[in-house]
């Protein structure tokens, strides 16, 4: 008998929650393929280590961008392999709840459910990421009070106001922490004349990246390829430079939070001043982001206890209480 699953199919990482067991898989959403034969060579962490370091016949790709499937066939193969790793076989077909960005189109929704069904799921239902995040962040969404959650993922940033188990206001932008990495890559190329890979850009972001000045700031040495000479070169980057490089992306995320606040009904808006907003998702870990949002919105911002796992925990709760919560699935009638 298959155990039902909840999947946070993120642009950056895929997490799987198994009913009655908890989180059983947490791996980067990356797949490595043999370009010539089409064979899968690695998935998850192993494939992630290959990004930018592969010979010509191997390609390590992220099949999701901006929370949407960019390559249907590769995504289906990745989901199939991930499900196999958690024990799903041809004879054990579980029900699956998948978290997706709220802004995805009808075509993208169908692509996700079809990919899951073809990968071995008996039934695939979708849930909006901010709703799952609010459940997983343990917010009191069963009460008639305003709960605001900001979920900053790899490819999307979503802000939602939730009350009485439903979404009251929602704002989403297809901008996330991968756009921060891309902005760092572009800045280093433009200002220092060296090319760096996406993994190096991510390391720079984690080492010295910030959305606002912080107390413990240091510089970082970055190695890349000189665009003029083609030789390896080292440059030193400062936190101010990185803040300047990523400013457009950070501003875009904060602007979407402000738009969501403006959409909230006044009765709920006053709750935010007391209860604050909750930040979840890997992008929320950017240093100085919470104080910056707090400064620009004048609303307290709190970090969820488990920001990376909140979404899959929320979806996991839905799979544990499937019948009572099936009205929350996308496409289902709201109660």
């Amino acid at each position: 008998m298959a155990r039902d699953l909840a999947i946070d199919l993120g642009t950056a990482n895929t997490l799987v929650y198994m009913k009655g067991r908890g989180i059983v898989l947490n791996e980067p959403s990356v797949i490595a393929l043999n370009r010539q034969t089409g064979e899968v060579l690695a998935t998850g962490r192993e494939a992630w280590q290959m990004i930018g370091r592969t010979p010509g016949y191997i390609v390590a790709v992220r099949p999701l961008r901006g929370g949407a499937i960019t390559d249907f066939e590769i995504t289906e193969r990745m989901i199939r392999l991930l499900l196999q790793r958690v024990g799903v076989s041809r004879f054990t077909r579980p029900k699956v709840v998948i978290c997706v960005p709220s802004a995805i189109t009808e075509v993208e929704r169908r692509a996700v459910t079809d990919a899951a069904r073809r990968a071995g799921a008996a039934d695939a239902q979708l849930i909006e990421q901010p709703m799952a995040a609010a459940i997983g962040a343990d917010l009191p969404i069963d009460e008639p009070v305003g709960n605001m959650v900001i979920d900053i993922g790899g490819g999307t940033s979503e802000t939602a106001v939730i009350s009485l188990g439903g979404v009251v206001a929602l704002e989403a932008v297809r901008v996330g922490s991968f756009d921060i990495d891309a902005a760092i890559q572009a800045y280093v190329r433009r200002e220092h004349g060296i090319a760096i890979g996406e993994r190096t850009a991510e390391e720079v972001k984690m080492a010295i990246g910030s959305a606002a000045p912080t107390d413990d700031e240091s510089q970082a040495e970055v190695r890349g390829r000189d665009l003029m000479t083609g030789l390896p070169k080292t440059v030193v980057l400062t936190p101010e430079e990185i803040r300047f490089a990523i400013e457009d992306v950070v501003s875009s995320i904060i602007a979407s939070v402000v738009r969501c606040l403006a959409k909230a009904p006044p009765e709920l808006a006053q709750d935010f001043l007391v209860r604050g907003m909750y930040l979840v998702g890997g992008g929320g870990l950017l240093r100085g982001l919470a104080p910056r949002i707090e400064r620009e919105t004048q609303v307290p911002v709190k970090m969820s206890n488990m920001p990376l796992e909140a979404v899959v925990m929320g979806a996991g709760h839905c799979i544990e209480h499937y019948d009572a919560l099936k009205t929350m699935f996308m496409g289902a009638r709201r109660p």
């Binding site: 343990d138 188990g165 996991g316 544990e320 919560l325």
Partner: peptide
Amino acid sequence: HIDALSPEARREVMDR
């Protein structure tokens, strides 16, 4: 629906 979203109902998943 509301009862299933209560903190008591969620405790099992959170603890897990």
